[in-house]
Structures are given as structure tokens and as C-alpha cells.
Simulated assay, not measured.
Amino acid sequence: MEEQYATHLSDYTSWDQLDHAEDYVVFLENIGEYLTIDETSLSQGELYTIVTNKAAKGNKGCLVAIIKGTDSERVKSILIRKIPLEKRRLVKEVTLDMAASMEQIVTKTFTKATLVTDRFHVQKLAYDAVQQMRIEYRWEAIEQENKEIELSREMGKSFVPNKLENGDTPKQLLARSRYLLFKRKELWSPSQIHRAEILFHLYPHLEQAYNLAQKLGRVYQKVKDKGVAFTKLAQWYDQVEKAGFKSFNTVSRTIQNHYLTILNYFERRSTNAAAESFNAKIKAFRSQFRGVRNVSFFLYRLSKIYA
């Protein structure tokens, strides 16, 4: 059926982008004032850069371009060549993640646009820093349990694991605390509250790191003024420096290196959620057809729905 559709029932063979579809497809008529840029994988881990128009809300007309690869020079040259300057100058804002290549593409292509770093990518850095500390503690707990097992064998005794008041062993406590460390305290269930009390009693540095991540999230949730956000982030940097956690120092330096585009979020509170949503649609579309055997045909079908 797919072969019949491609060769006879559709206009795929006469598609005006067929000659270069494996490398790029561009729909300049879908250019708008507010765009998103992101990357996704179509097949076998091959990455593509995707530009979408926010105004279309993920429906028909949202797809502006899909270009093979993430090399900034290559993507930039295709966009500049295929989209006229007057069209590119219409773009007022582009939301993106913290990838340097994406920033270079936007800066050189959409010269009048304001760059906005997606808030969720910034917050994820802080959450990842917390999870890194949790994982390090878990490896220590596993190593400690291994030593206790070996000691029990040497003494000819059966090993009895150390159980905490909620029934978890230390390594189970750290493994089962993963999800609660992503959530705000008011969203914890009663069992998660109990688990967190034990966790933070045993690992006070983990509680400190969790609070730092939540404070960064509250800046995004509550602050609506760019100047106030600048002050709040400066105070957060100071708290991170005093805490002295290596992973959070890395997060802090990363945010400082992108602070201009991060602060732009507080002008219109724009996020890259549209791009992430479109990526999810591509994955669902790919799954529905059990993978991508023919990239050009896949992009043709995608363009029929979203371009």
C-alpha cells in the first residue's frame, strides 16, 4: 500500500522538494514572527535541525524547515540561500536550547530576532545536578553494602541488610527517591514525604542541592520583570557559590555564559515547548509507520500534514 501510495496515489514523485529532500526541505511561506529551533532524530540516530512557526500551534503551517545535520555553517547556508532576506528579517524572536550551534544559526540567519533560551533546559541542568549527587551517593551505598556482604561471608554469617524506618535499605532509598527530587514538596505523596525526611536526614547536602534547584525554578515561576530576574539570578549564583557543590558550580557558570538570552525569557515568557511538542509528534508519526525506511518519503508525508 505504501509503495502504491508513493508511486501512484500521491503526488510524491512530482513533489517540488524531492530532489533535495534527504538533505533539506524548506517552506518559506510558513515563516512567522516567532519561531523555534531544535534538533531531532529521524532514523538510526541521524540528527536533523527543525525550524517551526509558533503561531501555527503545531498544526498545518508550523513546519518552516528540516535540514539534515546540526552543523551551524551548513544549516545557516541553506536557510540563507533558500529564505529571502526580507522574509528572515520579519522574525522577531526565536526560542532555542543552549547549544552553541543553534545560537550561531539563529544569530547569522535571523539577524533581527531576539534569542530566548528555553527555561526548561535551564531548569533541567539544575535537576540533573541534583540527580548526579543522588547517583554518587547511591554508588557509595552499593559499595558499602558489597563490603558488608563480603565481611559477613568471611565471618560465616548470613548477611542482613540495614533497613531504614520506612523499610528501604540505603541503596533502595536513593534509587526510589529519584522522582521526588524532580517535584515540588507540595506535590509529594505521604510516602514520598516520609522517604524525603529520611533521605535528607542521612544526606543533608542532597537536601541543600534540592533546595537550590527549586529556588531556580521559583525564579522562573514567580518573576515577571527582567530586572528583578537579573537580581534574583545573581542571588542564586551567590547561594551556589557558598554551597560549594561542583555540579552546581558548573550549572551556574553555564547560566552566566547564556544570561542575556536567559533573561530574554522574562520579556514574553516564551519557551521552546512548541519545538518539543513537534518533536514528540514526529516520534509518534515515525512509530506509527515502524521507523523511517525512506527519509524523503517520510518528510513528504510530514510536510503534507504540517507544512
Rank of each mutant, 00 (worst) to 15 (best):
K108N: 10
T13R: 14
E197N: 08
E3K: 13
I255M: 15
G61Y: 04
H121Q: 08
E33M: 06
K232A: 12
I262H: 00
Y259C: 15
F182R: 09
Q239W: 10
K82Y: 14
R138C: 01
V122I: 08
A55M: 15
A243V: 12
H8S: 13
E2C: 10
L79E: 02
A229Y: 00
H20S: 10
V122Y: 02
L302K: 05
H121V: 09
Q214F: 12
Y210H: 04
I50P: 07
D97S: 08
W139P: 15
F230P: 09
K185L: 09
I105F: 07
T52P: 11
E103F: 12
Q104D: 13
S177A: 04
M102F: 11
T36V: 09
L79T: 01
V295K: 02
E186D: 11
W139V: 15
F285Q: 07
S252V: 09
G291S: 01
I37R: 01
P204N: 12
F230N: 14
D225Q: 04
I282Y: 01
S303W: 04
I66K: 03
E165S: 14
E165H: 12
D97A: 08
Q214H: 14
V160N: 11
H201A: 15
T117C: 15
S189I: 04
N59L: 13
L125M: 11
E73F: 06
V251L: 05
N146T: 11
I50T: 11
E2P: 10
I305Y: 04
K108E: 09
L299P: 07
A280T: 13
T114I: 15
A56S: 07
E93A: 12
N257C: 03
A129C: 00
V64S: 00
A55W: 15
V91S: 02
F278Q: 01
E148D: 10
H258S: 13
E165G: 14
R286C: 14
L199K: 04
I193W: 12
E150C: 14
V219H: 02
L164N: 03
V122P: 01
T231N: 07
G217H: 09
L18Q: 02
F248E: 05
S287Y: 14
G45N: 02
N264Q: 05
I67Y: 00
Y137W: 11
Q235K: 11
E136Q: 06
